[in-house]
Structures are given as structure tokens and as C-alpha cells.
Design a protein around this nucleic acid. Structure first.
Lengths: 172, 172
DNA sequence: TTTGACAGTTCAAAAAGAGAACTGTATACC
DNA sequence: GGTATACAGTTCTCTTTTTGAACTGTCAAA
């Protein structure tokens, strides 16, 4: 599969993955949220090769996730700033961090704590339903095709067919 | 950088990215949440090469995100089922989908709608603070080192130094 | 004049991924 | 019995990506 194609699939997840779904891009975005803005800053913080960094930054700018803003003339220098579209990635970042905090910490505990200025407390992000406000569990969510689905109302597009082998065998 | 190293970095985000931060892994996980469980199912749904699929599934099992469960004897066949650790990835998936729904849809609208069984309505996921319940904005979050930080209390570890060039130039 | 900051670009070598064919067990159909 | 098909991989070669390191070019400070 060519990754350009991903962005045209009738799946918001595939499209998003086509834009930010690789390791370096995600790490670059982490740095953005930690207030890194300049080429050298990203490069030294991440140890990414300069070649790839230049390419990834270009792509993020093309996608409207970063804005390339001049901060001095002669020589021309630019900073990479998150746009609103970029800032909207924050829940993804927080969800990733939170999973790591839950499942990937060693005995010493979390590397980073997050404090909510509103209430002053260290917090965890919780995903809730926009309609009823209750936390969302995978089991309680039912998906069905929306207007942008490939073939409207074709359930098989969105839910894999139940495993039903044509050939019956000895079952363990 | 070797990607194994990522998992040892003192950053929950880097560690998580080391585990699930590549395109195919994310797409495989999408399929898992859409109830795909078998090798052929993943392969035909995604068009991933069989080679890569086998490798990624192995890795996800090693990481405890999927469990390889036999569903028949002779020939031995297995299904790949999300563990609790895997199910806990759901907020990440939903956050990714939601960003795509917001920023990557065409005129036709969303490819997929999500219905919350609790309240019966189609919903968007909203990320709120575990302490005060208010939605979280990037601007309202302050980070500081936790017990698992590389060097306790070294602020420079977690916040990039403010851009302060040693050399002063004509500023635009 | 030399050094260093900064933001890239270039190029050869190594790693990862794609595409297709092949392996091996087992059942169903003719 | 012979052929076809399901399933879950493995093996192979070829192409694309990524790495690592060096190089380019502007400007300022010592």
C-alpha cells in the first residue's frame, strides 16, 4: 500500500494515520506540545536525522498542522508553530501518554505529571461521551456507517464479518 | 535511533510509540476493535503483506496487547484477541478517529458513526480531567517531572529551553 | 580571520517494506 | 483418488525508506 492512498480511504482513522501515524511524526508532535519550535531544537531533542526532520516538517506544514513562521530576516529563519488543527491533536497525545503511564512505567513511576490549571490538581485524561458525559468503554460503543461511508448502509464495510469458516473442522 | 530504545526512554509517550507507533500496527489495532480476529481477516481487510502481518501480530502478542488463543486443533489455528491492556488502547483509537472526523472528512461527511449504548446517541469522544471533569485544553495543562523522570526535578528534561539564541540578530 | 549558530541539502550504505510464490495441514467435492 | 479451497504462515527478491555523516550557505561575535 502506498501511504498516500491511506488519506483517501473512507475511514477517519486511516486518514489520520496517513498524516501522523509514523514514529518520527508523533515524536515531533510531542516536542511541539513541549514548546519546541525550531529545527535545531527538534533535531537535538530527538536525535532524528536532519534529512528526515526536514521532510516531516514539510509534510506537517503541507497538512496544515504546523505553520512556518519567520522569526528573523537575514538569514531567513522560521519557527514551526502548531495551528489549531495541530492543537486539536492534543487528545491523541494525552491518550497515548496516559496509556504509557498505565502500562509502560517501571517501579519508579511516571516520568511526567500533568497538572490541570483549572483545578490545580495532577490529573489523568478521561474520555467521555459528548452526549451523556459518561466514560466510554469499547464494549458500549456501536459503530454504523455514516454519510461518507464507501457504500451507504453496507454493514460489512465497517464490521468484519463474524468468523464463519465455510469449512467445518474438529473444534478443540 | 533503534526503536527498541524508545521503549526505555523516560517518556510514556515515547514508550507507547515504540509499541504501537507505526502505521500497520495502528491499522491492525483498528481491525481488532472492529472484531477482526484471524490472520486471513486482517490480511484481506488491510492488504498488508503476510510477512509484515505475521511480524506485527507476534510483536503485539509479545507486548501483551493481543492474546493468541487456539480455536481449533489439527491443524492448529489461533485467534488474536485484545487483552485488557489492548482494550485500554481504545481512547487512543477514538481520539485518532475523532481528529479525522473533524479535520479529514470530505463533503459527504463521516465514514463511520459511533453510538453510545448507554445513552443511545451518536457521540464524539471528549477528553476531560479526572479530577474536575472539565474538558482539557493544551493551554491549561502544565507538565512537571514525576518520580520516573531521568533526573528528578530537572525541568529542562521536560520543557524545552525557551528559544534563546546566544547570537543576537536583526529580528524581523 | 576563525569560530559557531542555524537551517537545511546531498549522497552512499543499511534497514524496512512490498509483492509474489511457496509450505503444510486438513476438509469438501467430484 | 485427484482436485480445489481454507487457513496460517515462511521464504524469496526487489524497491523504498531511513540512517549517518558530510557538505552548503548566511550571518554574528571574538
Amino acid at each position: 500500500m502506498k501511504w498516500k492512498e491511506l488519506e483517501e480511504e473512507p475511514c477517519s482513522m486511516a486518514r489520520t494515520i496517513g498524516v501522523i501515524g509514523d514514529r518520527w511524526t508523533l515524536l515531533i508532535l510531542r516536542e511541539c506540545f513541549l514548546r519546541t519550535r525550531r529545527f535545531e531544537g527538534f533535531q537535538s531533542a530527538l536525535g532524528i536525522t536532519r534529512h528526515l526532520l526536514a521532510e516531516r516538517l514539510k509534510k506537517l506544514v503541507r497538512q496544515g498542522i504546523l505553520r512556518r513562521v519567520p522569526y528573523q530576516e537575514s538569514p531567513k529563519r522560521h519557527e514551526y508553530i502548531l495551528t489549531q488543527k495541530g492543537l486539536d491533536l492534543y487528545p491523541i497525545m494525552m491518550a497515548i501518554v496516559h496509556w504509557g503511564d498505565t502500562h509502560m512505567v517501571d517501579e519508579r513511576g511516571r516520568p511526567l505529571l500533568h497538572q490541570h490549571r483549572n483545578c490545580g490538581k495532577n490529573f489523568d485524561p478521561v474520555m467521555v461521551c459528548s452526549e451523556c458525559g459518561e466514560p466510554i468503554l469499547a464494549k458500549e460503543v456501536h459503530t454504523h456507517p455514516g454519510p461518507g461511508a464507501r457504500r451507504p448502509l453496507a454493514k460489512s464495510d465497517v464490521e468484519a464479518p463474524a468468523p464463519k469458516p465455510k469449512v467445518r473442522r474438529k473444534v478443540a
